[in-house]
């Protein structure tokens, strides 16, 4: 299948069924199809258990779909080996999580540097780039701190800075405001979206939070594993 050079995600009939034989299979995602363009901010809303996180895991190349095809940046990721998927994730994807997922053992700066180092960038260069990112997100003064010393909003902004570390084409954000108060949540999402627009990075946000709709270019709703309002490709 050919994909437009502007198309970052093209999902066709994505399905994910869980089950190990002893229990009846559970269909978490069923026939999901949509596309996302470069620089687009896409919000997927839906109640708990609607399959949002499973969809995000598939888009994040972490679990394979049971059926359907998924093209990210023109690459059919359903056909890649585990090793290639890991490399693909490192080079092209960034993540923001509900509970921040910063490594407590590392400083703020080191947390941002980590994806760069995993990608092969050497220490002085990664430290310089992490400094620039932290400055962009207003956290340079916290660079030497450990995450435990940061507020929730600051932690999420560090996570956002980390997501941009390897200049990804796609950032997947799972409930980025879920652990924050409204002000901090708004600030975190706004900083994520404005940076993404500046870098022409596609952002796919999964959230309950209706306030995020204001910053999203497009909203898709998910219910019972199916997408409503998706663009069929």
């Amino acid at each position: 299948m050919k994909t437009d050079s502007n198309t970052v995600i093209r999902a066709r009939q994505l399905c994910k069924t869980y089950g190990n034989g002893s229990k009846p299979p559970v269909r978490a995602v069923s026939g999901v199809a949509f596309t996302a363009e470069r620089g687009e901010v896409l919000l997927i809303r839906g109640p708990n258990g609607s399959g949002k996180t499973t969809l995000l895991s598939m888009l994040g190349c972490m679990i394979p779909p049971s059926r359907g095809s998924l093209w990210i940046l023109g690459e059919n990721v359903t056909r890649l080996s585990q090793r290639r998927l890991t490399e693909f994730r490192m080079k092209h994807l960034g993540f923001v999580f509900q509970t921040f997922r910063l490594l407590d053992a590392l400083t703020v700066s080191e947390n941002v540097e980590l994806p760069m180092n995993l990608g092969g960038m050497r220490r002085p260069d990664s430290a310089r780039k992490a400094g620039a990112l932290l400055e962009e997100f207003g956290l340079l003064h916290r660079a030497g701190f450990h995450p435990q010393a940061l507020s929730g909003g600051e932690k999420q902004r560090v996570a956002v800075a980390r997501a941009f570390a390897n200049d990804p084409s796609l950032i997947l954000a799972d409930e980025p405001t879920g652990s924050l108060d409204s002000r901090a949540g708004k600030a975190a999402v706004e900083s994520l979206c404005s940076a993404a627009r500046r870098c022409r990075t596609t952002v796919l946000i999964v959230s309950h939070d209706s306030r995020i709709e204001a910053v999203a270019d497009r909203v898709l709703c998910m219910e019972d594993g199916r997408l409503k309002g998706g663009t069929e490709s």
């Binding site: 994040g60 972490m62 090793r83 890991t86 490399e87 994730r89 490192m90 080079k91 993540f95 997922r101 490594l103 053992a105 980590l114 994806p115 995993l118 990608g119 390897n166």
Partner: peptide
């Protein structure tokens, strides 16, 4: 385990 899962998500190889 969540830290290790994070490292995997960020692209850490099995060798790493």
């Amino acid at each position: 385990r969540e830290d290790y899962a994070l490292l995997k998500a960020l692209g850490a190889s099995h060798r790493f």
